[in-house]
Amino acid sequence: KQTLLPLLKEEVSSFIFPCKPAVQRPERQHMVMELLRCIPLLLFLLFVCGLDHFIFTVLSVIQNHSFIEYSYQASHHLSVNVMGTSLMAQLLRGTIGALNTSFESEMETSNLVCLPRPTGMTRQQYLNTCLPLGLLALLCLAQVYPFRLRRAIAAFYFPKREKARVLFLYNKLLRQRKNFLHLQRARVARQARQPPELGTVLLRWCRRHWPWLRRCLRQKCTLCGSAETPQHQPCPNPECFALYCESCW
């Protein structure tokens, strides 16, 4: 049977390696989608906090600038004088004299009871409000690691299904690699038929006449584009200047 290892550079990006601590490309796409789902919640939270601060500001302005205090003062004096010395005068003086009154009043009132008394949220309260959303974002970032165990759990309970999946993946990669090599061969042949550019010709001339410049003027793999290393293999055809890495070769 044909082996698939080592994987090609183009194939590595489509797989998830459980032992790698870094977030890999397929996981990154899923993680970004989960973070995008948190944006509506973030916008709603910002809207609610902004609305709360706006209402608090309006009520504070009303409380500070709508205070009115009333002050009322009044005085009243009533005096009835009955003149004379007769019996009737004395009787009226004793009866009507009780009406002699003196009254002074002073009243102060305000609309303090009717004014609103807003209480703004503190910084700690705002932080506690945003804390669940922050935890949700952290879960979106950290969920990629527990998700790597899904296949191991499924393989433990359904080993036959896992074997079928591995066989399907093996055949799929073989077909993709066969098509990939066919396309790359056609691309290399098409590039070989085209005349080289001036920069490419100058680079080859410098590398041929000054070999010590090869450390600076390194070529790339014709297929995957990886930088030149001692393991790269040149094309055996002396008229071809193609260079291939170990995996592509």
Rank of each mutant, 00 (worst) to 15 (best):
G134W: 13
W212N: 03
T119H: 15
G97T: 03
W249M: 05
A186C: 05
R190A: 14
L87N: 13
L8T: 02
Q24W: 02
C140K: 01
E108Q: 15
I153C: 13
G84K: 03
L174K: 06
D52N: 13
Q125K: 08
G97F: 05
S66H: 08
M33S: 12
T57E: 11
A98C: 07
A227R: 10
V166M: 13
W205V: 06
R193H: 09
L41Y: 11
R25T: 09
I96F: 14
L141W: 08
L36P: 00
R207M: 07
C19N: 15
L136K: 06
F67Q: 01
A227P: 01
E34F: 02
R161L: 14
C114M: 15
K220F: 10
K160Q: 11
C140T: 03
R208H: 11
L41S: 14
G84C: 03
Q143I: 12
Y157M: 07
L99R: 00
P18K: 06
R37Q: 12
R177V: 01
S86V: 06
L167D: 03
L46T: 03
Q176W: 05
R117A: 12
R28H: 04
M33P: 00
P146Q: 09
S110I: 03
P146G: 05
P196W: 06
L92E: 00
S226K: 05
S66T: 06
Y170L: 08
R148V: 06
L91C: 10
L99A: 11
P159R: 09
